[in-house]
Design a protein around this nucleic acid. Sequence first.
DNA 1: TTGTAAGCGTTATCAC
DNA 2: GTGATAACGCTTACAA
Lengths: 326, 326
Amino acid sequence: MATARDVAERAGTSTAVVSYVFNNGPRPVSADTRRRVLEAAAELDYRPNILARALSAGRTYSLGLLIPQIRNPYFATLAEHLENFARQHDHLLLIGDSAGDPEQESAHIGSFIERKVDGVVLVSLLVEPAIQRFAAAGVPVVALHPVPEGVTVSTLSIDYVAAAEASTDHLLSHGYRTLGVVTGPEDSPGTSEHRRGIERALDKHPRASARYVASPVSRFAARDAVQPWFKQKRPPRAIYCSTDEQAFGVLFAAWEAGLRVPEDVAVMGFDGTSECTVTVPPLASVRQPIEETARSAVELLLDRTNTQAARHVLDYALVPSTSCGC
Amino acid sequence: MATARDVAERAGTSTAVVSYVFNNGPRPVSADTRRRVLEAAAELDYRPNILARALSAGRTYSLGLLIPQIRNPYFATLAEHLENFARQHDHLLLIGDSAGDPEQESAHIGSFIERKVDGVVLVSLLVEPAIQRFAAAGVPVVALHPVPEGVTVSTLSIDYVAAAEASTDHLLSHGYRTLGVVTGPEDSPGTSEHRRGIERALDKHPRASARYVASPVSRFAARDAVQPWFKQKRPPRAIYCSTDEQAFGVLFAAWEAGLRVPEDVAVMGFDGTSECTVTVPPLASVRQPIEETARSAVELLLDRTNTQAARHVLDYALVPSTSCGC
DNA sequence: TTGTAAGCGTTATCAC
DNA sequence: GTGATAACGCTTACAA
């Protein structure tokens, strides 16, 4: 593999100039010299050694994505978009999948810091400790979930409370009086926001009631979580899920229990992954702007001028479908 | 951040010894010195700079995974297991998702080579060109799909022909006479193996016939691909899919067309992802040994002694379920 | 068993 | 505009 020294020799100049050319700075280079360098580089098929560059310049041209579970289509989609935008900016995306395990998340945090990623997109189980560690290491972070007041970090998310309210309200407006709610684990970020939105909607429908169950964000866990309801004489007439992933499990549990969706039980997901359009039956959901989230996250992380921690709120969209009775 | 020099000073020794301690070699260190170094390191919270280590030693302690689509649960599961095993060996897993696009795959190949990963797990769209580039760059590769004879590379896979034959035979043994086959794109690795296996099974059931359609490996594409069949007077009585991902789309298409599974049309997937157990109805499939594949792949890549290119054949398992009529 | 010092391939300072 | 040269932090001959 050719090095900058090889290119410099061939172009009759120095490694410094080769560096100036390839980085467009920090010193100017005459048009003629630049041409000779580029020619020599092309002839030798020179590519700067990223590792050396990283060591010297302190930038790795990589971004980290820390998520609870890559198998969740929402995160898989997010990863795809982030990777695209990262590539457009000549960055590599590292994916850290915690598999719902705080210890694994912690290991990934260490790994990202060790490898000196230029920034991290965070969907954390630990939230505050995670943010602290990255802050201490000087790694810029964008969090995609609700973060407690007072924690200094950029966030990029929809208004979860409003979205949960809108979704629940939609269900209750169908006339469904008994609501089942599947949230994530008690302490996971977002759970309280979903609850808050649901309570608000319930306030507007005084004759409706709700029962709650917390479940890991997995279709398998969610199926298990709602099975008891479906064995009861009077299962909830409608089920609100805080993620599509869980809703997939609920659709299955209903089928397994011999309940028709939406005739016997209506189901609403959350995230609006495209997988919703091909479930049996198609799943109503709240669409998150995944692509826009990814684009903004990459821009925020790579824009070295803007170091302000700002909280950005994106738009969501309610997407009715067969599963909610439309 | 503390450096080896800091640790050396504090322990009253040299950076060389610090290195010997942290790498268990290549020179021996006295028990006492080792202890002093470890103490100093602990006090300073020293962690070797991976970038510097990589530049100097030529190893990055990272593995690459190149796949067509992270949203496919089979690949997502594979990624999870690989990441676990990689972590157990103190390696980071880089995931390159080509999204079915050869250009993106090509970009990832360049990226992996540039970043000097220690090895690559390959599920390629391009196969031979990909293998060539890694070979030229001296990057060890394990391919998880069928590879043309004569190409020198380690492979790790089930016997696709036998598995396809067993699966098809299972369907035909139910008495289904008309078979629909959904394969991947014509030129994708594996497609011809599936075909070969199917032909063999058909030979054993002379009264059965098959029609074929090639489709990108996506549930959405597969739904579109089989829709015409389901609009016909006589749709195929059973459908064989070369991936679960496609079978998910087929289940949806059947529902959409008002056909019952398995009463009107039976469906068989391939890969045996756990998502099969919670589809409506549960999907019969051929289970691939994903975890074992991941374990072996990591071991093969990290075992620097064994540089032989060997073709390893793993076991598959036919998993009947509701969708095939059991 | 330990220490010195020469890389690894960049970047960027500073003098010209 | 350009070119020596000193980092960056580690590994590893080689010498002691």
